[in-house]
């Protein structure tokens, strides 16, 4: 008998297709590169984040500098590219600085909630039975309230301020992320390849790590990225109600609230923070959509 490798396929096919050694994430990146829409909105998002980070360097004015004589000036007035607000502060500078707070409040709660909610969801999905029932019923209690109401109630109970606002948002996002992770885990857990991995006699933690986590990461990440825009809007809403960030901090929601009274005097200026929120959340949603199709290995 010859050696074990004797029964390979005919040599003619060997140079038909080059061996593919791009990993999973390599594949995702490769596909994203050929998706112009996602690339465009990704660039916009990146610019917004960079603007927020480098706000002190690029802002034309001090965001806190008030001026009685320059109140509610239209865009373009004496170097105020986006005009001035009701206290005469430069709106562009305030939007740039406000991005720091608003984006942080958009992203950080989602990240923390992904870790906590995702972890709980995987646990519930994989363990099943009593543990599942316990975790998911607790989540259901939170589910009973609309997310806006819940956020308002929690941050109202804890008092205003950016940190309390973020904690409130985190708590709001844990149940939906937990639910998504649990559903994904339950689906994957019942597939044959998980049984096949168990049938090797491998320890459960290896099965979980190699065969379950990898397959639920996609849906959870995609869902989380779509929550970022919700979080930005909710954070703005909290500030708008006076529960999140407190004046005179430049936050987009807070600015929208303050400029609301000027909507008949200077509508264009009053719309600016809203436009910033809109562009950011649309970009976030588009990137999340692009990610979703890029991460679907089968297409």
């Amino acid at each position: 008998m010859s050696t074990t490798t004797a029964t390979a396929s005919p040599p003619a096919t060997i140079n038909a297709t080059p061996p593919r050694q791009r990993g999973y994430w390599g594949n995702v990146g490769y596909r994203l590169r050929y998706d112009p829409v996602t690339l465009l909105f990704g660039t916009v998002l990146l610019l917004i984040i960079l603007c927020a980070i480098f706000a002190p360097l690029i802002a034309p004015f001090d965001p806190y500098q008030e001026s009685i004589i320059r109140r509610l000036k239209p865009p373009g007035y004496r170097g105020h590219i986006l005009g001035t607000d009701e206290l005469g502060r430069d709106v562009l500078s305030r939007i740039l600085f406000g991005g720091r707070i608003t984006l942080t409040m958009g992203i950080l709660p989602v990240m923390v909630a992904t870790l906590i909610g995702g972890g709980l969801g995987v646990l519930a999905g994989f363990a099943g039975g009593l543990i599942n029932a316990l975790i998911m019923r607790v989540m259901d209690v939170f589910y009973a309230f609309p997310s806006v109401l819940l956020a308002v109630a929690i941050s109202g109970a804890m008092g205003g301020g950016a940190v309390n606002g973020m904690i409130a948002l985190t708590l709001v996002f844990i149940p939906p992320l937990c639910r998504v992770a649990e559903t994904a885990t339950t689906q994957v857990r019942n597939l044959d390849f998980v049984d096949a991995a168990k049938a090797t006699g491998a320890p459960l933690r290896l099965v979980l790590w190699h065969h379950v986590l990898g397959n639920i990461l996609g849906p959870v990440l995609i869902y989380a990225s779509s929550l970022v825009s919700v979080s930005i809007i909710l954070a703005s809403g909290l500030s708008f109600l006076g529960l999140g960030v407190t004046p005179p901090e430049p936050d987009w929601g807070l600015m929208l609230n303050a400029l609301r009274q000027a909507i008949y005097i200077s509508p264009l200026v009053a719309a600016m923070p809203g436009i910033a929120i809109l562009i950011t959340s649309i970009s976030m949603n588009m990137v999340s959509d692009g990610l979703r199709s890029a991460m679907d290995v089968r297409s």
Partner: peptide, 29 residues
Amino acid sequence: VQMVFQDSASSLNPRMPVQGSVAFGPIAF
């Protein structure tokens, strides 16, 4: 004792190159 499953579509981890799926058992041991 090992098993071969019916549904070839769901019996392999879609996120793993097939040689990884084959090697998983021995690596686990």
